[in-house]
Amino acid sequence: MSDPHSKPKFRWHIVVFLAPAVLVYTAVMIYPLFNTLRLSLFTEVDQARVYVGLQNFRTLFGDTVWSTQFWNALGNNFWFFVIHMLVQNPIGIALAAILSHPKLRFASFYRSAIFIPTILSFVIVGFAWKLILSPIWGIAPGMLDAVGLKSLYAPWLGKEAYALTTLSLVSVWQFVGIPMMLIYAALLSIPEEILEAAEVEGITGLAAFWKIKLPLILPSIGIISILTFVANFNAFDLIYAAQGALAGPDFSTDILGTFMYRTFFGFQLQLGDPHMGSTIASAMFAIILVGVCLYLFGIQSRMRRYQF
């Protein structure tokens, strides 16, 4: 490659290869991220940016108008995450376990069909479910009526007590394909010899799943959990598409993403405030960072990985 007589040259091609990615990534992702954290320390007075230290955070956590909204959004976001962990991931694992049976016919058809909601946009999903659950159209009450359960029907999206859970379940419906696929992949990578050895010992069926496969796919479940966590605490689109920026009824579906959007852009009578928006973004950043660190240092490093 290089002339043996000369000294080792500076390898410019490394710089050329790295520069575009590093520049775009730094300029559009990393720099704005830190700039947002920095902006949370400023406020606007007479159209000038003034440094105020941690004042915005004091307002967010201390001023009751702000702190009630913040804790409401955080609590709702947490519930959103809990529903995903309790419903989406177990259903995904169960579907993957069924799909990974050898000799199951039509497996690829089921797999592709169940993945379809995941590829649809939040706008489609939000509106489609809004229409289906709407009391005006009557598909949901009609179907419940057909199985004699009409009394169970309520306009779920319009009731404060149910709206958030309903939307969480819609989101679960949409994204169940992701844990299904990842667990399916993990299950396929378990060597046949292990399962055969278990079979010789008389461990088959459900016992084989609980005692052999589940422990082996735990690392994948860990990854799915952290992906779910990051996605949930950064969610916005579904709530916005189905309930609007006000996350109604009466903020009962407000999560951190919609709260930040409203604060940043303003709504109705409230003016947009980029500095308070940055403050909320910084809080979200801290929450996600804590979650990811807990996972990396608390869970992943302790998990036993098996190499086949």
């Binding site: 559009v28 992702m29 720099y31 704005p32 991220l33 700039n35 947002t36 902006l39 952290i226 990051v230 950064n234 916005f236 993403g257 930040m260 940043f264 980029p274 928006g277 940055s278 973004a281 979200m284 950043f285 996600i288 960072l289 990811v292």
Partner: peptide
Amino acid sequence: MIPIRIGTVA
């Protein structure tokens, strides 16, 4: 792991 949305304001 860090969502780009956090930096939206900037």
